[in-house]
Simulated scan of single mutants.
Amino acid sequence: MQVLTENYQLYLNGIWTTLQICFYAGMLTLLVGTVIAGFRVSPLAPLRAFGTAWVTVFRNCPLVVVLFFVAFAIPTLGLNASYFVFGTIGLALYTSAFVCEAIRSGINSVSAGQAEAARSIGLGFTQTLRLVILPQAVRSIVPPLGSVMIAMIKNSAIAGAFGVGGDLYETGTRLSSAQGEAIVPVLLGVALGYLIITIPAGLLLGYVERKVAIAR
């Protein structure tokens, strides 16, 4: 375990960079996933078709393929950014399909009578979704959404393989390859770093789930 004690600062920096990736990707994927979920339940056929196509493509494509496309195809359009940005965007786009389905399942759990009552008092589709349906759907959304976000944190290791730099994946690669450290303790340190992130996140999500259940 000497590797861990001698390089703890590298691991701390890796945890911090991984947290940044997960935070920005999480915010973006929640935004995109919610919008796509709205498309999926929209009364307009073109929006439903777009939402279905989005989920089908990103849910059935490997994350590596999505990251390759974002990192190497988008720059050909003249849009240049760092690999940190591209990795975060790719991770968010991939995860948004699963977030969308978690939110859609929550929307579908709300009684249809709620939407009919909202329409009867003159609310439009967007107002009904935002003011009536989503607040009630939160109770059903939290558990599957929590699982999706935990999976996203673990998937950030794949994003790190695309040259993000400074994350836990890159820290393990640097210590094992460039500095020649023994691979087993290095990987144990990387695994511990992800546990430091995922366990508190799981506890927080469990707390939120209990609070929602009490509110029910």
Rank of each mutant, 00 (worst) to 15 (best):
A25I: 09
M27R: 07
T29W: 04
T29S: 08
L30G: 01
L30A: 01
L31T: 01
G33V: 07
T34W: 04
T34Y: 05
T34Q: 03
T34R: 05
V35Y: 10
R40N: 11
P43K: 12
P43R: 10
A45E: 13
P46A: 09
P46F: 14
A49G: 02
F50Y: 04
A53T: 12
A53L: 14
W54I: 01
W54P: 00
V55A: 06
V55L: 06
V55P: 01
V57W: 14
R59M: 03
R59P: 00
C61L: 15
L63W: 07
L63C: 04
L63G: 02
V64R: 03
V64A: 08
V65T: 11
V65H: 07
L67T: 08
F68A: 04
F68M: 10
V70G: 01
A71I: 00
A73T: 11
P75S: 11
T76F: 15
L77S: 09
N80V: 13
N80K: 15
S82V: 06
Y83C: 02
F84Y: 12
V85A: 11
F86N: 02
G87H: 07
G87R: 05
T88F: 11
T88W: 14
I89W: 08
A92K: 04
T95Y: 12
S96C: 08
F98R: 14
A102M: 13
I103N: 06
I103M: 14
G106L: 09
G106M: 08
N108L: 15
V110M: 13
A112C: 09
A115C: 10
A115R: 15
A115Q: 14
S120R: 09
